[in-house]
């Protein structure tokens, strides 16, 4: 039997909430699939649509942007901008024909290690049946 498809995920985690939440998952020794490589950014609001497209372009099968809960942004309102921007990017990707499951946004606070773990587990499960992302890959 062929080896099971392992999706490659890039996760943009804001420093103050989601990266800290991901740290907490580690401190609490929770377990999730190693398919995700985290990139810590200062704020989810700093995630440019180009970062998302660049990740898909470079072969990501899924992209996650995770920030503080709306209203709890360390930078007051950065995640509100992120929310709007991500909604637009989602529509753009939909228009291009990329499966909507491939791009997700989540709100994970510094206290939500369990939630982060679950999000990654679910994300990987959702991506597996889709197979590799080819729509936006540069090298194909």
């Amino acid at each position: 039997m062929a080896e099971e498809f392992e999706p490659k995920i890039v996760a943009f985690l804001c420093k103050w909430c989601s990266s800290a939440g991901s740290d907490l998952a580690g401190v609490s020794r929770m377990e999730y699939p190693p398919n995700v490589v985290p990139i810590q950014v200062m704020c989810s609001g700093s995630v440019s649509p180009l970062y998302v497209l660049s990740a898909f372009n470079k072969g990501a099968d899924g992209v996650l942007v995770s920030g503080c809960h709306p209203g709890d942004c360390h930078y007051i309102k950065g995640n509100f901008y992120a929310r709007r921007r991500i909604a637009l990017v989602k529509r753009l990707l939909d228009f291009i024909g990329l499966e909507p499951q491939r791009f997700q946004m989540s709100w994970v606070s510094a206290a939500e290690g369990t939630k982060y773990t679950q999000i990654i587990k679910d994300f990987v499960q959702e991506l597996k049946p889709l197979g590799p992302q080819t729509k936006l890959r540069r090298d194909l």
């Binding site: 950014v41 609001g45 700093s46 180009l50 970062y51 660049s54 470079k58 930078y75 901008y81 921007r85």
Partner: peptide
């Protein structure tokens, strides 16, 4: 405070946060 919301908004990457520039992020991706 270096949050970078400006940089994600700029259409020309004319404003960037020092030491976490778009170029750096693209390389990290």
């Amino acid at each position: 405070e270096g949050c970078g919301t400006c940089s994600a908004t700029c259409l020309r990457a004319a404003i960037q946060v020092k030491n976490l520039t778009p170029l750096q992020v693209h390389e990290m991706i």
